[in-house]
Design a protein around this nucleic acid. Structure first.
Lengths: 338, 338
DNA sequence: ACTGGCACTCCGAGAGCGGGAGTGCCAAAC
DNA sequence: GTTTGGCACTCCCGCTCTCGGAGTGCCAGT
């Protein structure tokens, strides 16, 4: 494929993203210094259409990039636009003010949606990929304790727990010591195996309590494996009038379904730092006109994903830059808090 | 005002809510057994319009209730439709499965939005109206502890805290004992005064740590006073096509602004169990076409509010019944968990 | 006080009509 | 053989116009 043809494609993508209207040969030859006439551009366009990168909504309208066209643009043409120094400072400052993990996630998701003017989604650090930092037992009454689990990413989970028998304060401390000995520093995925043996390790008088504890702990580890996600910027969907058509409704619904969000975020090509999925590449029906840009984040290893979703006609270079930058900063912060 | 005129108003409200179209005299006289002719209904309509309860979008169209009309309907005409037995059972079952406070709130907000087909908003139990059930200090490293606060409603707040000096395990326990002695059972609003004296009560060696702790505690109590809210059912906004016009965008934005949501939920007429605010009665500009139905909830005293918002043309009897029922169940659950 | 009749209003859907933007193709030029 | 200007053609979109229908207000009669 000709270099100039690629330039024409780039021009079409950029103009279409900017104006939201089909772009014609004349516009391309004028606004982008290609040094050729509109007629030449027309020939190239015919080729690009033949090859499936662009298409016409109707005869005698300009061209619109296809998913395949965007894909080529993202892979080979889009030079990532780094954030401005001011933006970088703002990101840094805003995130540095976060006081705990919840706050980090909340701020991140807002930041992303504001930087990109799109819908942002941030997954909380996955319990599956975390290790136990500490377990705490808080006696509320003699037969009722609260179990608090803190992971290495700072995520805190708590569960109430009714005991089969009254526990003295010392007993609580002993159980606390026991479970911490067993679990501290261990990856959460290994926890179920360890928990199974918990009751046997306790001294006879505590067996029952220990196994009640073990049961709740197991539940916490397993049932809470359902991932949590934060969403922001839903209002941005209304910017893109084309969405109004039919999909707005279903997309809003999907944004409240954690399962769907996780599908969007999750299927990252392992290894890749940043994934872009365009239109049909999302295998979910309601997102056939949606592009998703996601990145993994975490201290060292990836513990979660964050991303942005919007119409396929989005500013890829800018969005990619924003997602990447924010993911990096958040990773740094988690690293520091470790 | 005539009894029949009220019946006419009721008919207009009910039909308009059902069909979303201006309702004419003929429709009223036919579909509601008033026993009078369309001409008579027209006379009553003229009166109702004069009195400001209904209006015509244009000459020769049917009538639409005004905010004032809805208000009258809600206050005097709407017999609350109790939930069906099946619905009540479903609510009960769904909420009973909740495993902790977060879960209660999440389930509540979903439930409300599904029952009413509208946007639901639930405020987390306000820290301002809670008392301290327990404070826990978790030593993560010798100079770093996590402070966990549990309130009587089951809400858990945690904060990381760097200490000025290393603390032995016993010291941590002592501090823990100290703050619990001082704060346990106290309303959170009184906490700032108590916290101020905390450092002085500690033995000299712990002064610095105690005051660092006090500082963070104070911050937690104060800064976290910003209320948390959960939202669900935003997709329901798209049901009401009239919203599409202009306000959809601003309403979606407002739904992400906790401040605005709290204004909507908060200004409950004190004393009233359930508040309905219609159109202009919400003093926020973007909600001039929105009605809000809110109820307080809590074990005994009100600790938070929940509600539903939608177009002024909403099914008030059904919505009111749903909000009231859910608020009651949630209050019961909090009572049990106390 | 209620009713049937009637003239009047006005919205909104549909048809019809250019203008304009964009195309494809061709023959000439570089 | 690639590029270019010219030209006929297509088709969308916004405009006006028309017309039917629903609904009203008023009046005279019961």
């Amino acid at each position: 494929m000709d270099d100039r043809k690629l330039e024409v494609l780039r021009a079409i993508v950029e103009d279409y993203v900017a104006t939201q209207e089909p772009v014609g040969s004349k516009a391309v030859s004028q606004r982008h210094a290609l040094g050729v006439s509109a007629a030449t551009v027309r020939n190239d366009m015919a080729y690009l259409e033949e090859a499936g990168y662009i298409h016409q909504p109707h005869t005698s309208a300009g061209r619109i990039p296809t998913d395949k066209g965007y894909r080529l643009f993202v892979d080979r043409l889009g030079k990532i636009k780094p954030l401005s120094a001011a933006e970088r400072r703002a990101v840094h400052r805003f995130l540095a003010e976060a006081i705990d993990l919840d706050d980090v996630v909340t701020r991140t998701v807002r930041l992303l949606s504001q930087l990109t003017h799109q819908v942002a989604v941030v997954q909380y650090p996955s319990l599956n990929r975390s290790t136990v930092r500490h377990l705490e037992l808080v006696a509320l009454t003699p037969t009722r304790v609260m179990l608090v689990m803190i992971t290495d990413t700072g995520r805190v989970e708590q569960r109430l727990l009714d005991l089969p028998a009254e526990l003295a304060e010392d007993d609580v401390l002993e159980l606390r010591r026991l479970i911490n000995e067993q679990l501290q520093g261990k990856p959460l995925v290994d926890a179920p195996d360890i928990i199974g043996d918990l009751a046997e390790l306790a001294r006879p008088g505590l067996r029952d309590s220990a196994s009640a504890l073990a049961r709740v702990l197991l539940e916490t580890v397993v049932s809470r494996t359902e991932e949590r996600v934060a969403v922001a910027g839903a209002a941005n969907l209304t910017r893109h009038t084309a969405y109004f058509a039919g999909s707005l409704r279903t997309i809003l619904e999907a944004l409240e379904e954690e399962v769907v969000l996780m599908q969007l975020l999750g299927r990252t090509d392992s290894g890749a730092l940043l994934t872009v999925r365009i239109g049909d590449e999302n295998e979910i029906d309601d997102f056939r006109e949606t592009a998703v840009v996601t990145a993994g984040y975490g201290p060292g290893a990836v513990v979660g994903h964050m991303g942005v979703l919007g119409p396929t006609r989005m500013d890829y270079p800018g969005t990619i830059a924003a997602v990447r930058a924010v993911a990096r900063y958040v990773s740094e912060i988690l690293e520091q808090n470790r």
